[in-house]
Design a protein around this nucleic acid. Structure first.
Lengths: 325, 325
DNA sequence: TTGTAAGCGTTATCAG
DNA sequence: CTGATAACGCTTACAA
């Protein structure tokens, strides 16, 4: 790789001049600019970002911390972030936390060590020194903390919606899948659902799960129908377990939605391709990602954005695992 | 962030000494080591990777270039890579190419500018200056080029398998979904399938698609049954379109697998949760990722690995969209 | 309009 | 065993 020094020599100017044309800053004569540009082309020079970053104490990198990119909700988020960042010439260092505080800290650490200019994080522990001590902007994505920049959707409201719709459509023996205790959005949804079920005096049971993994989802679905065979409505904590529940219900010979209605959460890409297709509470994942990126960029540029916590709409997406009303 | 200089002052030694304890290199007296370690702890110092990287001309970063992380096959690959790299203290810069040469070049460029020590890429154009000119190791993942380090599975063989199995199970009016022209693995699968169909003199039709997108998959599925209503067997180019085909077949009132058999490709996590669950040609995605990472690490460490191109097994994964034999 | 040189935070060489 | 110091490739005062 050519360096700025070589370009300078090649063009017969000083490194400062090269730097000037590179950064389009200060005055430089048209002729010398031409020479420099030629040299750059000939040597196929591209500036060393590391050196730049060292001097400026900031890079063009941002850190993206996600729970697990293997869960189809997160790739959507990630693409939203990446595409928006890419437009602004920022690149992404990515890390999967597995919802584990240590991994989280570790990644945040590497982000810092690499001079990232900002981080976007889906964490259950935003109110922690790991983030509070950071002196670069952080945007929480799919999670919130009071008064900290964040982009999320209202899980509680989503839970309410789910319960409301499933009740409206006639379920009376509802089983709620609670989702992992330490995952905030899962608990919000759960609370929301309970809010309305209690309110309306509708019976419900709860199945507690401990992860979002595809492989375990099947087991919980089985457990659900073993423990609560009379279930005529399931509010799942996300589309993965909803899919597993649907699969299990069908396997047991139940008619969906006639015998059991199912509502998922997220609207991951596959949900509409299931048969019957999955009714779900949709989160606009890709948009959330790009919105978060946009917010972070504004924060980085020090334009104090008018809104620091952005709540995205959650929408009831009616498909075929619920009855028509 | 504290710097090595501050640590040195705090500990009453020179930066050189601090550097020595940091890197566990050269001699340093037990007592001074203790002092330095204390200072490090007190100041909460962690070395600036950027400065390190500048001096050494290499970072602890590797570049990962994937077509589209939104396609559920790739997150598996990515996790495999990340987990293995993480064990060896390498971190990942990620980029989605959308199978587009320009984006690809752009990302490779940023990787270089950030001093990555190696690249893992899923590209359809490995035999291109973009990669040949790189003076850091590159491992191709899910793709190959002659004699270049790569981890992939035999798409052609997979295609053969799919055709063989669907024929064995009785399909005689087969429609092959060819998959995007510019995506190598898709074409390999297609060729493999054709190999055996021609060989056995079995009739087949072809539907050509131009992407792997979830949203378009539905259209192709429709097109398929409109153009070739007699189809009694579908070999899809991957599980996404297989899912769409299954969905459409069911929508049309066809019995699967009795009227139509369907075989997909990849075995993405959702495939086993479909109803009926999807028969597919499995690629061990996660393992491919971690294997590629392992190979790259050996290349980086200059241990000439015995095998530079590693072919992973493809396996017929019998589920419920094909008949029992 | 251009060049010189200091400095970003490390590591490694070379004296001591 | 330890400390100065040059060097990594770049940006930016400051001088010229």
């Amino acid at each position: 790789m050519a360096t700025i020094k070589e370009v300078a020599k090649h063009a017969g100017v000083s490194v400062a001049t090269v730097s000037r044309v590179l950064n389009e800053i200060g005055y430089v004569h048209e002729d010398t600019r031409k020479k420099v540009e030629a040299a750059i082309r000939e040597l196929n020079y591209t500036p060393n970002e590391v050196a730049r970053s060292l001097y400026k104490r900031k890079s063009r990198l941002i850190g993206l911390l996600l729970p697990d990119i293997t869960n189809p909700f997160f790739p959507e988020l990630a693409r939203g972030v990446e595409d928006e960042m890419h437009k602004h010439d920022f690149r992404i260092i990515i890390g999967n936390s597995d919802e584990n505080t240590n991994k989280e800290k570790e990644y945040i650490q590497t982000f810092i060590q690499n001079n990232v200019v900002g981080v976007i994080a889906s964490t259950n522990y935003p109110d922690t020194d790991t983030y509070r001590k950071l002196d670069i902007p952080v945007v929480f994505l799919d999670r919130t903390a009071d008064n900290r920049p964040s982009v999320y959707s209202d899980g509680r409201e989503g839970g309410r919606m789910a319960a409301h719709e499933i009740v409206t459509r006639g379920s009376r023996q509802i089983t709620i899948i609670q989702g992992p205790k330490h995952i905030r959005p899962a608990q919000d949804r759960y609370q929301g659902a309970i809010d309305v079920l209690r309110d309306q005096g509708i019976a419900y049971n709860v199945v507690q799960t401990s992860s979002y993994s595809f492989t375990e989802a099947g087991n919980w679905a089985q457990e659900l129908f073993e423990q609560f065979p009379d279930t005529d409505g399931v509010i799942a904590s996300n589309d993965i377990v909803a899919t597993a529940v649907l699969h299990e219900a069908l396997r047991l010979g139940k008619k969906v939605p006639d015998d059991v209605q199912i509502i998922g959460f997220d609207d991951i890409p596959l949900s509409s391709l299931l048969t019957p297709s999955l009714t779900t509470i949709r989160q606009p994942a890709y948009d959330m990602g790009s919105t978060a990126a946009g917010l972070l960029i504004r924060l980085i540029d020090n334009q104090n954005p008018d809104q620091k916590t952005i709540q995205m709409p959650v929408t009831f997406t009616e498909r075929d695992t619920t009855r028509k009303v």
